[in-house]
């Protein structure tokens, strides 16, 4: 969710061992099981694991945002009371059912975002012409990011205009340099371990849930 910041950009430790498409497909393979897990304790532990992995992938997680998200989802569910009444605060009846549904839904969404954060990298090349166009767009994006220091808040339009004129003189627009080819590294042993660990953690939790219930 966080923007890439020049200078403060974090290293993606996973990129050293895992190829982007492999990460992407592994992530997608976890999603069905993720939606089927509804034991809150398991969900919570997995969310922690996902957050940790996203951190390893160099993504900065704004925890406050996700607390707020879970909080607001829970709040809205509490408005429709379901289940055992735990407490009454003013006009609100806090019920066990509403609390559980809200927290479970919030955790599901947060986990999904974290999962996406560590599974998707800009280096993931989409196939075909769309992929080629995306690469071109990323190249321009990096160029603008380089020029952003010259943009001032007081004369936003004027300074933005200067930067754009300097970077992309309209007449000469047409030959973007190739985006710096990122070196794709992949380590078979780590890849297998990653697949087994993440797959085991998520699909294993689902299995555990069926065994318990």
């Amino acid at each position: 969710m966080s923007p890439r910041k020049r200078g403060r950009r974090r290293t993606d430790h996973l990129a050293r061992y895992l190829a982007p498409p492999f990460r992407f497909w592994t992530g997608l393979a976890l999603i069905p099981a993720w939606f089927m897990i509804d034991l809150i304790v398991l969900k919570f532990l997995l969310v922690l694991l996902f957050a940790l992995t996203a951190g390893l992938a160099g993504k900065k997680i704004r925890y406050l945002y996700f607390f707020f998200l879970i909080g607001s989802i829970t709040f809205f569910h509490i408005l429709t009371p379901v289940g055992k009444i735990l407490a009454e605060i003013g006009p609100f009846r806090i019920t066990s059912g509403a609390l559980e549904t809200g927290v479970a839904k919030g955790l599901t969404l947060c986990g999904l975002v974290f999962l996406s954060l560590f599974s998707v990298t800009p280096a993931l090349k989409l196939p075909g012409r769309v992929g080629g166009l995306l690469a071109r767009m990323f190249y321009y994006f990096e160029e603008i990011l380089d020029g952003r220091k010259k943009i001032s808040a007081s004369n936003f339009i004027g300074s933005l205009d200067d930067v754009l004129l300097e970077l992309f003189p309209p007449g000469k627009l047409g030959e973007p340099g190739e985006a710096a080819a990122q070196e794709i590294r992949s380590n078979l042993a780590v890849s297998v371990l990653y697949l087994l660990f993440m797959g085991g953690a998520v699909w294993g939790s689902l299995l555990l849930q069926y065994l318990i219930v």
Partner: peptide
């Protein structure tokens, strides 16, 4: 892709 939200509801 840049924010990494491709595989989520976002």
């Amino acid at each position: 892709l840049v924010n990494g939200t491709l595989a989520s509801y976002v």
